[in-house]
């Protein structure tokens, strides 16, 4: 168990370090001088040079990387060129929107997908299976931002049940804030739920063909009991894998969805930063999202060990 955990942890850390190098390298090869960008076109060469020294831009590459990476570790991402505030403050503020959004979407997609997958697998080939898998097939094909537009049209423009966009802030109360996250979460969740339902179904069907399912049936367990007690847990591994991957997709998806709904989240922040060429913000947010993806994948690896005793047995 410990060997497995340590190996996974080491891999995650190594990936994170490599990823940070990639991001740093991208920062390095970017055209334009950040000091010049900050001071504007009218600044003199001396002023720029002074700021470059202050910012540590003249230090050797390796040292600059260490300085930058050390800053990340102590949550010092630097200052935004355009907002002139520490990036971490911006990120913290925006995370309060993006994180709940991604989590609600993930929960929603799981809650919908797993029962549908179970239902479909247990009625394989029957009408219920055909209908739900047909719907899932369609769901996989729908781009989430277009689905979002359609939702806005129906629920905000036509039925006027929810706001079409914007975010009142958590200070306006939990319910109004949640209400404005509802449509975005649904738009994010449904296409992902379709994928997850398909994976759940096929994983279950594969497991149901295993020999040990027959052993369980030969014990006298009815089909339903076999499905719940024996098949589901074994089918969890591919489902968990997809859940991990989906988190990455959801994070990326928030970038688009936040733009559709004008939500002041990380996605909108990074998008605006690109248009304003506020590169330090772009790098920081990318780094943060990459770290989140790596952390979630680590979590998925660890949950494999919980589900599958074969991974645990290395005592």
């Amino acid at each position: 168990m410990t060997a497995y955990l340590l190996k996974r942890l080491a891999i995650a850390i190594a990936t994170l370090v490599l990823a940070s190098m990639v991001v740093f390298a991208v920062l390095e090869i970017l055209p334009g001088d950040p000091a010049r960008l900050m001071l504007g076109m009218n600044a003199s060469a001396d002023q720029v040079e002074l700021l470059r020294n202050q910012m540590g831009l003249n230090a050797p590459l390796a040292l600059r990387y260490l300085h930058w990476a050390g800053g990340l570790l102590s949550l010092d991402f630097g200052r935004s060129y355009t907002y002139s505030v520490p990036v971490i403050d911006l990120v913290r503020e925006r995370l309060a929107v993006s994180l709940p959004l991604a989590l609600i979407a993930l929960a929603l997609s799981t809650i919908i997908a797993i029962p549908v997958g179970l239902f479909s697998a247990s009625r394989r080939g029957r009408a219920g299976d055909t209908i739900s898998m047909g719907a899932a097939q369609l769901g996989v094909a729908v781009p989430n931002f277009w689905f979002a537009l359609m939702l806005i049209y129906v629920f905000a423009v036509w039925l006027r049940l929810v706001p079409a966009g914007g975010f009142p802030g958590w200070s306006a109360g939990v319910w109004p804030a949640l209400k404005s996250l509802l449509l975005p979460a649904v738009a994010l969740a449904l296409p992902q739920a379709a994928i997850l339902a398909r994976v759940t179904r096929s994983a279950l069907i594969e497991v149901l063909n295993e020999d040990y399912i027959r052993t369980a049936r030969a014990k006298g367990l009815p089909y339903r009991a076999v499905l719940w007690r024996h098949a589901l847990r074994n089918a969890m591994i591919p489902v968990l894998t997809i859940l991990g991957l989906q988190f990455a997709f959801l994070l990326a998806g928030t970038i688009i969805i936040e733009n559709v709904f004008y939500l002041p989240g990380l996605g909108r922040l990074v998008f605006q930063a690109i248009t304003q060429r506020d590169l330090i913000v772009v790098e920081s947010v990318v780094m943060l999202l990459v770290a989140a993806v790596i952390a979630v994948n680590l979590l998925v690896d660890l949950s494999y060990a919980v589900v599958d005793p074969r991974l645990r047995s290395r005592q």
């Binding site: 891999i11 990936t15 994170l16 490599l18 990823a19 990639v22 991001v23 991208v26 090869i29 970017l30 055209p31 990455a248 997709f249 994070l251 990326a252 998806g253 970038i255 688009i256 990074v270 998008f271 690109i274 060429r277 590169l279 772009v282 990318v286 999202l289 990459v290 993806v293 790596i294 994948n297």
Partner: peptide, 19 residues
Amino acid sequence: NDLVFAFPALLSAIMITAI
């Protein structure tokens, strides 16, 4: 592979576009 996988397509697109 893991490294590349850590950058969802949209994120790498954003980085590439930024450059």
